[in-house]
């Protein structure tokens, strides 16, 4: 799909060159150039995020609790033993999986539909494009609170909407009923996240050369065939990255769950991230919180690595090998 010709650098590498030429090549060819271009990104991330992750790792092997005096910085496996014998941890991991897959699938699907709908020119397209990013333009804290009011079992507008449908007469307790609560939260997450998918997919669609569709039209391919044989393969990389990003966003999702249910009722919506927060900032057990954080890190690395292997295996190996 992506044309990859032999890089030009390969041709002139054989003989040694004078220092001045070497210096100039730093900004045109050779290894110095890529290093220089990648360094700022790596450096920033290593300092701001990498370093705290290492400190978190150290913290997870200590016993730092605000509430208990019998704590200290000595090496201990206590937090990990506690974590693996805690039945709630496994349940949280499972809930995180359900929450993440539901949100990602929903947001990607809605985002793709919206992108396809506003791809080609029509009267008022820019207006609809603005409409479709609005849920994301408003801070999550605020939109989540609105959903909370809408979901209210007695006064909320959601029950009024649902009861417009035939056959539904009683009020549904959206955030209390154990059969509905996780779905209610996922709906809020999808609504807030799909504009991200929409934006990236829209930009991806714009990069597909129009000639491909013209040629397909000449050959008499219908809309579905064009989508399947032109749009889908051309969007593959962007869709993959979008799914990874949405996965990370929904896995880390804090505001939606924290504000609407706080993990309840009866831990029905306690994901790994919510459990991490509750350990660190409700029980003030920083070390246990850090250990749960490390578990989240390992969990997401495994999932993303598997996913990348399945979808981008060829590209990534290609990039690593050459």
């Amino acid at each position: 799909m992506v044309p990859r010709s032999i890089p030009l650098d390969a041709r002139h590498e054989a003989r040694p060159k004078p220092a001045l030429v070497r210096f100039r090549e730093l900004f045109s060819d050779g290894m110095g150039f890529p290093a220089l271009m990648v360094a700022p990104a790596l450096l920033t991330l290593a300092v701001v995020i990498g370093f705290p992750i290492v400190k978190g790792l150290i913290l997870s092997f200590q016993m730092i609790k605000l509430t208990s005096p019998a704590t200290g910085g000595d090496f201990t496996l206590y937090n990990y033993v506690k974590m693996f014998s805690d039945k709630n941890v496994l349940a949280s991991v499972w809930r995180s999986c359900v929450y993440m897959s539901g949100s990602v699938l929903g947001a990607t699907f809605v985002g793709l539909i919206a992108a396809l709908l506003t791809r080609r020119a029509f009267m008022g397209r820019s207006l609809f494009r603005t409409f479709f990013i609005l849920p994301w333009a408003i801070p999550a804290v605020a939109t989540t609170l609105v959903w909370g009011v809408m979901y209210d079992a007695n006064f909320g507008v959601m029950n009024r909407i649902v009861q417009l449908l035939p056959g539904i007469n009683s009020n549904i307790e959206w955030l209390i009923d154990r059969d509905y609560v996780l779905g209610s939260l996922i709906a809020v997450q999808i609504w807030g996240d799909f504009p991200v998918a929409y934006l990236f997919l829209l930009a991806g669609l714009q990069a597909i050369p129009e000639e491909l569709y013209e040629a397909a039209n000449v050959d008499g391919a219908n809309g579905w065939q064009q989508f399947w044989h032109i749009t889908a393969p051309q969007l593959r990389y962007i869709v993959t990255v979008t799914i990874i990003l949405l996965g990370i966003l929904s896995f880390r999702s804090f505001a939606v769950i924290h504000i609407l249910t706080g993990g309840g009722p009866n831990r029905r919506t306690e994901t790994l991230v919510i459990q991490t927060y509750n350990a660190a900032f409700r029980s003030f057990d920083f070390s246990y919180g850090a250990a749960l954080g490390i578990l989240s890190l390992i969990f997401s690395v495994v999932i993303v690595a598997l996913y990348i292997r399945l979808t981008l295996g060829r590209e990534m190996r290609g990039a690593a090998a050459t």
């Binding site: 890529p34 790596l42 990874i244 990370i248 690595a305």
Partner: peptide, 30 residues
């Protein structure tokens, strides 16, 4: 990473992504 093929590019891509996988609530203290 797209144009200049160099050793370790794939690894760099993965490492960059890994930094986003620790829940912020777990590292906000450090």
């Amino acid at each position: 990473l797209s144009r200049l093929h160099f050793r370790g590019a794939g690894l760099i891509m993965i490492l960059i992504l890994v930094t986003q996988m620790m829940p912020p609530t777990a590292i906000v203290v450090p």
